[in-house]
Amino acid sequence: MDKMIFGRYYPGNSFVHRLDPRLKLVVNIMFIVLIFLIKHWYDYALLGGVVIAGVLLSGVSLKFFLRGLRPMLWLILFTVGLQLFFTSGQHVYWQWGVLSLSQEGLINATYIALRFLLIIFMSTLLTLTTQPLAIADGMEYLIRPLKVVHFPVNDVALMLSIALRFVPKLMDETTKIMNAQRARGVDFNNGSLIKRVKALIPLLIPLMMSSLDIATDLTTAMISRGYRDGEGRTRYRILKWQRADSLTLVAFVVITVVAII
C-alpha cells in the first residue's frame, strides 16, 4: 500500500538531489514542451543524452526508473500500437482490413515510444530526487505571479504540502480499518468483482469519517496557532538558488536552442 506515487522519493545527496526544486520543475516543463517540438532523430538522441546524464548524476539505480514506467506501460503499448497499425503510408509491409504496417507507422511509433520514455524518465528523475514537500515549495514559487489575479497562492501551497504529508497517514488509516474489517470476517481479496467492490464500502465510510476527524483536529490546531491567510506570513523554510542551479539552467537553455534550430 505504501509504495504509491508519493512515496517514490529516493533519499540521497547527489548533484541532482541538491538542485533547487524550482529548477527541476522548470526544466521538466521545458523538457516536455521541447519533446513535442523536435522532429529529427538527432534531437531525440540529444534529449536522450540529457536524460541519461541526469540518471547517472542522480546516483539512483536504473530499476527505480523502470518501476516508474510500470503504471504507464499499458498506455504506452496502446498508443504505440495505434500508431503502428493505423498510420497509412507509402511503404506498406503488411495489410489486413483497416490495419496496416507501414514504414511511416513504424517511425511514428518509435518516436511516440521515445517521447513517452523520455518524459517519464525525466519526471521520475524529479520525483526520485526531490522530496514531495520541496516540490510543493517549488510550485508555490512558480505560481506566485498568480497573486496578481488574487489567486490564494499561500493557501494552495499549504494545502498541497499538508495533503502530500497526509497521504501516508491515510494509508495507515486504511490498513488499520481493513484489518479491523478483516477481523470481522470481511474478505477483500476473493469473490466476484461486484462482491469485492461491495466489500470496499465498509472501508470507505470509516475512512471518510476518520479523515474528517483528522481534518477537524488539524484545523483547530492551525487556527489556535494563529493561522489566518497568506497575508503577512513569514517563512521559516526557504529555497536557496545556487550557482549549480544557474549553470544547469543555462546548459538546458543552450540544449533547447540547439534542439529547436
Partner: peptide, 12 residues
Amino acid sequence: VAFGMENNGVPR
C-alpha cells in the same frame, strides 16, 4: 515549531 511564528510574521 515555526508554524505559529510564521503566522504572526516573525522575521526569519
